[in-house]
């Protein structure tokens, strides 16, 4: 089947099987390998992308379901002006270790911040509860998202130095 999708602002006509998973279309047909696969049961969130601006798990969406829609992957976040505030936030606050969950985490956080520009720690934790990270223990992911939120609101940036007891 032929479908039309706009990925990171570029229109594509893509030939897929009905059963082709959206994540496979993105990774293997469009060669955008920043979107990862970590489970098969929509449990881990490594495959999270934005579909018409909503974060979804692309391992549990068929490519044909994206027909006529727009997709944003991690490769589409940075602009000519530079990194997305979330990308910067994760880098400045050690919000990643192995990097495998990071693209999904960042895309999920981008919708979270679009809906709630000033989330509490609790809201962030619940907001990323569909994304598993095995490395960081989440503290610095929360901090990264708080940093990005401040930046996107135009507030003063919080310190990125580690705090010790």
């Amino acid at each position: 089947m032929k479908i039309n999708v706009t990925v990171n602002g570029t229109a594509h006509e893509v030939e897929v099987e009905a059963r082709t998973l959206l994540v496979h279309m993105i990774r293997e047909i469009l060669n955008l390998t920043g979107t990862h696969i970590g489970c098969d049961t929509s449990s881990c969130g490594a495959c999270t992308i934005l579909l018409n601006g909503k974060s979804v798990k692309s391992c549990t969406v068929l490519a044909v379901q994206a027909n006529g829609k727009s997709i944003t992957t991690i490769e589409g976040l940075a602009t000519a002006e530079g990194l997305h505030p979330l990308q910067e936030g994760f880098k400045e606050n050690h919000g990643l270790h192995c990097g495998f969950c990071t693209p999904g985490m960042i895309l999920r956080a981008s919708e979270l911040l679009a809906n709630n520009p000033n989330p509490t720690e609790e809201q962030i934790r619940w907001g990323i509860s569909g994304n598993l990270c095995r490395c960081t223990g989440y503290n610095n992911i929360v901090k990264s998202i708080q940093y990005a939120a401040a930046k996107m609101r135009g507030d003063a940036l919080p310190s990125t130095e580690p705090v010790f007891v």
Partner: peptide
């Protein structure tokens, strides 16, 4: 609703 799966699943 907030207890159903997770935010991405609730989007679909």
């Amino acid at each position: 609703t907030r207890l159903i799966a997770d935010p991405q699943v609730r989007n679909m």
